[in-house]
Each structure stands twice: as C-alpha cells, then as structure tokens.
Design a protein around this nucleic acid. Structure first.
Length: 636
DNA sequence: ACGGCTTATACT
DNA sequence: TAGTATAAG
C-alpha cells in the first residue's frame, strides 16, 4: 500500500548536486585544450591581474584560491591558465554560465523535483524515485551496480584498505539487513550516480553530490568529496558527523550568526549546540532561528525542495571601487543605461522562453562609506516595471534621482547643481523581481514539469505579441488589468503550513508505531478512546504508562492527525481543506499538549516533535522579551 | 577602499 | 509594502 510521509520527516531522499568549479568547466568545454590544466576564470584584468572567480582543482593543488588576484595566482602557479569572463557593455556578462546551468538543470529535472539553488547547485527530492526503485527491486538483488555508484563515499563506513573501498560500498549497498532508510538511500545513490553520468554525457560537465535524508545534510555531503564524487549520509552517521563539524561551515552560519554562536555561546562545533535548550536559542536568536538552530544541531531539517527551476529575479550590477566612483549624473546615467540594457535583454529572453514577466524594478546604489560620519546608506528604490530598454532606463534614472535627493538630504549639505562632490557612487545595480506567469500563453498543465524545457521551447514572436497586447493600454494602469490566474506572489503562512501538513507518500516509523499501537490499544475508534488502559501497552513505550485518560485521548488525536495528514482516513485532497477550516479534524495541532509526546516511545519522540512544530512561526514577540521567556514551554 | 556579481530570504 | 540586512558562492 502506498504510504505517506510528511515531508519534514526524514524519510525523504534528498540530493544536493554541486557543479565542480563550474565557470572553469564552462570555459574548458568552450576551449577543450584547457582540460586538465590548472585553470582559473578571472574578471577585469586591469587591477593586479583581475579577480579570480573560479579555480580548477588542478590549480587548487598549487594553493590557488578564489579571492586571489590574477597576479597572485601566477606567483604560486606560473603555468596557470587564466580565462577572462566575457564582457558586454563594459561589464561582466555571466550569460554563458547561466545558460550552462540551465542545461544541467534540465537534465536533472527529468528524474525528480528540482530546486535551482544557485547558478551551479541544485537540490532534488528523489523520494518517489527511490521508493519506486526499491519497490520493484531492492538493491540487495542488484548484481549489476555501476562503477560510479561503487565510488560513492558512505559516511560512517570504515574501510581499512582503500583498495577494498568499492567492495565495501557494494556490501553496504546490498546488505540485506539494512533498514528501510538505508535501502532508500542506496536507491537514491544509484539514481544520483546515473544522473551525474547523464549530466556528464549531455553537458560534458562533472559534478559532485550528496545524498541524505534532508537538504542540510545533502548539502553538507556534496562538498565533502569533490570533484566528481558523491557522498551518502546514512542516518546512523549523522550524530558523529555533526559532533565535530565546525559551526561556521554550516550553511547560514558562515557570517555574523555563526560568529555570534562562537563568541556569545562559545559554540564552535555543531555538537556543542546540543547543550542549549530550544528556548534558550529562541530567546537569543528569535523564535524561528532558535528552533532552526536547535534542529540542525540534531541533524533535523524540514525544509522542502521547492520545485523551482527558474530564478525568481534578475539583476545587473557593477561596482566602481574607490577612485572610479561615479560623481556625475551623466556617468551614472551612462552606466545605468548599460545595466538596464542588459536587464532588459534578459527579461526579454525570460519572457520568450518562460512566458513570464517581472513586475517590479529596483535600483540599488552604494556610496563610499569610509570617512564621512553620517553612516546613511543610499536608499534602494523601486517602481512598477515597464518593458523595453528605454523605459527601464528612464525609470531607473528616476529612481536614482529620487534616491539621491533623499541621500543628500540626510547626508548633509548643499547640492552643487550637477557636478560635484558630496556624493560618489561605488556600486550600481538594477533588478527585476515579482515574476508572474502570463495567463494567455500559459498552458494549463503544471508548469513545473515543463520549466526545464524552457530553453528548447521557441515561439518568441507570439509570446511577445501576446504580452504586448495584454500590456497595451496600461503601462501605468497595470493594476487594473485582469490579474494572471495563477499568481502566487507571497507564500502565506497558511500556505506553508498546508504544504507541510497535507502530504503524500513514503513510509515512516510513526505510522508503523501507530499501527502497532492501535492494535494493542484496543480501540481504534475515537469514540472509545477513553478505554481503560492496562499495563499491556507499556510494552511499546518503555516504562511509560498510558494510564491517564487525557493522555490517551491526546495520543489518539495525534494518531488521527497523522492519519489525516497522510491521507489514510481521507483522500489527500481533502486535507488541503482541512487546514483552512479544519472541518474534518477532531483536534487541532495547537490543542495538543506538547507533553503527551513525552509519553510516546523515545525513538520516535524527536521525529514527532519535529512534525508537530510548524516550520515557521510569525515572529511576533520581541527577542528576549519577558513574554517569550514566560510562556516558553519547558523542555529539558 | 576592492574579490565582483548575483540571487535568495528574513526582518521590520 | 518597500526597503534593509545577511548570506552564499
């Protein structure tokens, strides 16, 4: 029977795919003679030989690092091949890399839900694919496992002798006493190896990957063995992995937050985070961040793979460091024109290929910060976006002027008409955001499955025309236009909760537990939930006694909620409605006393707690306020 | 005041 | 909402 799991449970199979020194590979494909040579991609050759933005693994052996200048790189590695980023309109042009990234995504998207995490990284949810594979042939029966799979690294698997590695990995993959999670992981690893080979074949790019039960662990793993390798994270290895893992290397903790963890809490490894209660972390870092930290310390991460193959915004920018700072309106005008041209071009391709438009134009600028006392930043400004390079340019310069007036007003002094020196712009950028699909050209089938083909799809004229007619009589009256049907502008909290609550398939220890539990806990019908409980049930959950009526009731209600969410009581579709009005639920999650979870068997308490907890909560209460402290439940 | 350029997200 | 700040690579 098809079983369901909530996505926040760790029965998922998640992969993180990370292209190896991607820009270098793109250049090496363009210029194959560079293959195998120490190579780096640089931009702006002028100052100290340009800045490195990607370094091949051959070059890394010589100590070449990103964030070296070209000159520096040549000192440590004289043979290094330096390739320049393409330049257009006087600025770096990353389009070739963007397009190459899209090539990769469209290969990967054939196999499962993909989230484009950056130009060269993708998350995949392979749960369904892995389950399907496991269903028809468990890896234990697989004689024919490809070399690439055997080259996987399995965390926590000890291989005495390197030469035995593949044999050991095969044994791990095929061992018949593997638990369900490990078998699914094995299937995931097989799928990922296939995908990586397919990427290589179709794009000539190598990549590395991590296969784990959630995004955080998958991401961690993909970086552990590079290039062109994959790493598996069995559940049993998580604790040991995180224990000594440097906190600053965790995603999201590389900046100030991570530093604060170190200096304020004295936490240098993820393991050391375990010492702090959830409340303590919430009190210090806010409700969401606190809970997030508490979870990642335990290897728990319920974030979903988004299913998004296209970027949510486009931007074009350039810096004008130090002496090159722009000091006249006309120089700003010039550069804004360049940036807007590029932006407009990219918006037009996006429209042609993906049938969507951007609705907001944003301008950012920076001024030098050094000496002047008033620490005021140049304000960002935005306005409705009108298509066409000329219009974007016009709007952008107006935004700039508006920002400048404000900036000068705050800053201090008298404006010198147009010439001079109370300001200097060190960075300019324009961005387009709030992408929405165009109703008329959007076919009714689900776009997600088609997005990957955007590149190959072709009907530029028709799409432009459709757009223009839609847009025709209202550049300013845009709001009066009929709204595109399937706008999902901002995911509301409700939507998030819904996604996390109503869910699909898989298998889960909780479900199994409840099966057993209801077998023994006589009544499976809720009306009889008040049945007298005898000591018999305690055989499940250690010594804990389910002897209080209310506890039993609540445990029953947990069960109902769980069954509801996974659609065993109702069809999956009804659960959508259940979240909005909850007509079909007998209990609300928030009515459950959290302490009943303590009564559950220890092995699933953590899982259930993660499951009960909404992914995000509105951050209403001020950080560290008395109120938070006062109402925070007690957990050890 | 240089590592440049892009993107995403959380907070307010 | 718009605008700011943080983070990543």
């Amino acid at each position: 029977m098809p079983v369901a799991t909530r996505e926040t449970s760790d029965a998922r199979i998640i992969a993180h795919v990370d292209m190896d020194c991607f820009y270098v590979q793109v250049e090496q494909r363009k210029q194959p003679s560079l293959r195998g040579l120490p190579t780096a991609v640089i931009q702006y050759n002028s100052y100290k030989g340009g800045a490195l933005i990607a370094v091949s693994y051959e070059a890394r052996k010589y100590g070449v690092k990103r964030s070296m200048r070209g000159d520096e790189a040549q000192e440590v590695c004289p043979q290094i091949q330096l390739v320049q980023v393409p330049v257009a309109r006087g600025k770096a042009d990353l389009n070739t890399y963007r397009n190459a990234g899209s090539e990769v995504v469209s290969v990967l998207a054939s196999k499962g839900r993909c989230e484009r995490a950056s130009i060269d990284e993708v998350y995949m949810d392979l749960t369904e694919a892995a389950e399907a594979m496991l269903k028809e042939s468990s890896p234990e029966n697989l004689d024919d496992i490809h070399e690439e799979v055997l080259k996987s690294h399995v965390l926590g698997l000890h291989v005495e002798d390197e030469r035995d590695a593949k044999r050991e990995v095969r044994k791990w993959l095929c061992r018949s006493d593997a638990d369900y999670h490990d078998k699914l992981l094995a299937c995931g690893a097989i799928i990922v190896a296939e995908l990586r080979m397919q990427v290589l074949k179709e794009t000539e790019f190598t990549c590395s990957a991590g296969i784990a039960h959630n995004k955080m662990l998958a991401k961690l793993a993909s970086a552990m063995n590079k290039p062109a390798q994959q790493t598996i994270v069995p559940r049993s290895s998580v604790k040991g992995l995180l224990e000594s893992f440097p906190i600053k290397k965790m995603k999201q903790l590389g900046g100030k937050l991570g530093s604060s963890l170190q200096s304020d809490l004295g936490v240098n490894t993820v393991g050391e985070l375990l010492k702090f209660s959830e409340e303590k972390l919430q009190q210090r870092y806010g409700i969401n961040t606190g809970t997030w930290l508490w979870n990642i310390a335990r290897g728990i991460n319920g974030e979903e793979v988004e299913g998004r193959l296209l970027p949510k915004s486009h931007g074009s920018g350039k810096t004008f460091p130090g002496p090159q700072a722009l000091k006249t309106i006309s120089s700003v005008q010039h550069w804004l024109n360049q940036l807007c041209e590029e932006l407009s071009e990219r918006l037009q391709s996006d429209l042609d290929q993906n049938k969507r438009i951007a609705r907001t134009l944003t301008l950012h600028a920076r001024t030098y910060k050094g000496d002047s006392d008033s620490h005021k930043n140049f304000p960002s400004k935005s306005c409705p976006l009108r298509y066409g390079a000329a219009k974007i340019q016009e709007d952008a310069i107006n935004l700039f002027q508006a920002g400048l007036r404000e900036y000068i007003g705050f800053h201090n002094n008298k404006s010198q008409g147009s010439q001079n020196s109370s300001w200097g712009i060190t960075s300019l950028s324009v961005g387009a955001s709030k992408m929405v699909n165009i109703p008329s050209l959007q076919d009714s089938s689900c776009d997600l499955s088609r997005q990957g083909d955007g590149l190959t799809e072709e009907s530029p004229l028709s799409s432009s025309q459709a757009f223009h007619s839609w847009n025709e009589n209202g550049t300013t009256e845009r709001e009066a236009q009929p709204e595109p049907k399937r706008i999902h502008a901002i995911p509301t909290l409700k939507a998030v909760v819904k996604k996390n609550t109503a869910k699909e398939k898989g298998n889960c220890s909780i479900l199994e537990l409840f099966k057993n539990y209801s077998d023994q806990c006589t009544s499976s019908e809720k009306q009889h939930a008040t049945n007298a409980q005898t000591g018999k049930t305690s055989s499940i959950g250690s010594e804990s006694n389910y002897n209080s009526d209310s506890t039993c009731n609540q445990v029953e209600s947990l069960k109902e909620i769980y069954c509801e969410a996974i659609g065993t009581n109702n069809r999956g579709s009804s659960s959508t409605q259940a979240v909005e009005g909850r007509p079909s639920w007998s209990y609300r999650m928030e009515e459950i006393d959290p302490s009943v979870v303590d009564e559950l068997p220890p092995e699933i308490q953590q899982e259930f707690r993660a499951w009960l907890r909404p992914l995000k909560r509105p951050n209403v209460v001020k950080r560290g306020s008395i109120i938070t402290h006062y109402f925070s439940g007690n957990k050890n």
